[in-house]
């Protein structure tokens, strides 16, 4: 369903490495992504798979110990990597791409009223007057389901769910084309989670916004996903349509992961993936999942490329090598 459209965001061979005491950690190691207009891409991954680094790389929130940042990123046809930092900050950050960081609801400034905090991107990046900005803030609050009375409240007067909505409003207030959400609901309760996901669905439907949702929670991810990209050890091992991914995962890791998701109405107990994810500092040569993979074979000692499968599907696994042949 995304084939026909020109993608909004195209990421090619993105690399983000940083220096640590032990060596260079390849947090993002050759990632290719496409996000279409009005599409929600879910980036799934375990902790330490590099999914948050990917989000930061896209927003150019780079760590100080950066070792390497390269690759191609285009947004609506503009080459983002060619922009200098100042230009990127002024034109892209918050204006065209905004982000809700992990645990951002706990990072609100405790001594500034939430309305003013939400208005800040408008005032700083767009130079709007205070009144105009506040009017827009009230509108955005209505979209995310926060009463307008809350504009003058301080963060500590709000519940966790409300603060998360405020943070969401902050990302939406500039009406960006793309919103990156890093674990937006992981610290919230089931009901709050569901209602925040409802808000996101509504915004996507009504405003045509594109989303990149970064999460480790497969069940929550299915609430928004059009497409799913599964990350493992800094690489995307499978990228497919949500329906294919959830019902017929292709990569062995995807299969095991889907099998480990507990379901409310399921008589068999869920499975699990034995072993630990590899070190990002010295990732194994060859397929990075091979150590934990039940279907590994000789070929797995070589690094698999991403094979294109039917239905705009890309899988980094030698088992799908013949898939290329079918395709082309």
């Amino acid at each position: 369903m995304t084939d026909a459209r020109e993608p909004l965001l195209q990421v090619r061979n993105l690399q983000l490495h940083y220096r640590t005491r032990r060596g260079t950690a390849r947090a993002v190691d050759g990632v290719d992504l496409d996000v279409g207009r009005n599409e929600a891409l879910v980036v799934l991954g375990e902790s330490g798979s590099g999914k948050s680094s990917l989000a930061k790389a896209l927003m150019r929130l780079l760590p100080r110990n950066l070792a390497r940042f390269s690759g191609g990123v285009t947004l609506g046809g503009d080459d983002l990597m060619a922009m200098d930092d100042e230009h990127f900050r002024r034109e892209v950050q918050w204006n065209r791409v905004s982000m809700v960081m992990q645990a951002a609801m706990n990072a609100l400034n405790p001594v500034v009223r939430v309305g003013e905090q939400v208005a800040e991107p408008l005032r700083v990046h767009r130079g709007w007057s205070k009144d105009a900005a506040m009017e827009r803030v009230v509108e955005t609050f209505a979209t995310v389901g926060v009463s307008r009375d809350f504009v003058t409240r301080y963060p500590f007067e709000l519940s966790g769910g409300m603060r998360q909505r405020v943070v969401l409003a902050m990302a939406l207030v500039t009406e960006p084309d793309l919103v990156i959400l890093d674990e937006p609901t992981s610290a919230l309760d089931v009901l709050t989670q569901a209602s925040i996901m409802n808000v996101l669905k509504r915004i996507k439907r009504e405003q045509g916004t594109s989303f990149i949702l970064i999460t480790h929670d497969v069940a929550t991810s299915s609430e928004l996903a059009d497409r799913v990209a599964l990350m493992y050890a800094g690489q995307i091992v499978e990228q497919s349509d949500a329906r294919d991914f959830f019902h017929d995962p292709a990569h062995p890791y995807s299969k095991l992961l889907m099998d480990s998701v507990p379901r409310l109405h399921q008589s068999e107990p869920p499975g699990y993936i034995p072993g630990e994810p590899p070190d990002l500092i010295e990732p194994p040569t060859g397929c990075r999942f091979a150590d934990r993979c039940p279907s590994r074979f000789g070929r797995c000692s070589e690094d698999p490329p991403a094979f294109e499968l039917d239905g705009d599907r890309r899988v980094r696994c030698w088992l799908h090598e013949e898939g290329t042949d079918h395709d082309g």
Partner: peptide, 22 residues
């Protein structure tokens, strides 16, 4: 129970019934 999703691609299509308030 209504708020919990069993993984399904259709989840994205409709909003869940969630009681108002906190």
């Amino acid at each position: 129970l209504a708020a919990i999703a069993d993984v399904d691609a259709d989840n994205a299509l409709e909003e869940r019934a969630v009681p108002d308030g906190e």
